[in-house]
Amino acid sequence: MANVSVPAGGAGWGERLVDALLSGRGVWPAVPSIVVLMVMAVIPFAILLSLGFSDIEVARGAIISQTFSLTHLTTALTDPLYWITFQRSLNLALTTTFFCLVFGYPVAYLFLVGGRWTKRIILILTIAPLLTSGIVRTYAWLVILGGRGVVNSTLLSIDLIDQPLRIMNTHWAVLIGMVQIHLPVMILPLIAVMSRHDTRLVEAAENLGASQLATLRTIIFPLSVPGIGTGAALVFTLSYTTFVVPQLLGGGNYLNAATMVYEQVVFSLDWSKGSVSSLILMVTCLIVLVIIALITNRLTRWTRGRDA
């Protein structure tokens, strides 16, 4: 057993259990969540994987035989549709990440240099969208971007265009929705990392002759790299595997990796194909995450303390 400090006498077993979980060293405090993860994520995923790597015979709704096979994987990897779909997903996710960074960084910077009220307003505006579901926010874009939506009626009324632009159900609608929905996930880690640093660093830079732009370039930006890494990893993962936004704003015929898995499982009822697609989705996602982590690590060598 772990080193458990038992309170002196009188405590009930419940209190002792809580105490053991809280004071236990190593893995004990994590046990409940490990159990949940095993039951809810790892085991189902293992079952799904086993479907992707076997030939299955089904009779009267029950699996009667299951033999190991790589055919699903090889079919997928030689199918140009897969390549096109995954490339599109990758492009979309990388573009989204890029724009989230471009739009999010100035907001985080404003948070850093702004006064008390600026900070509050930014926090409220960043967090408030997270309080509504992604589906609701996506539907809001239907209203804004639609043929008779806010954007088109404004442009029409000022005679900038003659007829409504077709924004909905295009790549652009998906990208706009993705950037807006994932923006907070970029801004929050940036703010967390940037406001962790001593404001005197900025004063020191100014005192040593740096202009505001030079301070941003030489001090604030390099120190925010860990935040950029975290934000980029989160936004990439979420937008690479997103399902709701392309499904709603892409008009049902915008196929990305997640919508492909959905169609294979729900409409084609081909669980093996869906399983293989999920696997490819997960592995490629991990590869990009590792690349992001490597780049971030390379740029933040200074954080690795005392190993001169």
Binding site: L201, A204, S211
Partner: peptide
């Protein structure tokens, strides 16, 4: 402005740039 004054400040707890 601050960055043009002929003044050098040694800060409390030094404010060294941690990434340099």
């Amino acid at each position: 402005p601050v960055n043009r004054r002929p003044v050098g400040v040694v800060f409390q707890s030094y404010a060294l740039f941690p990434h340099m």
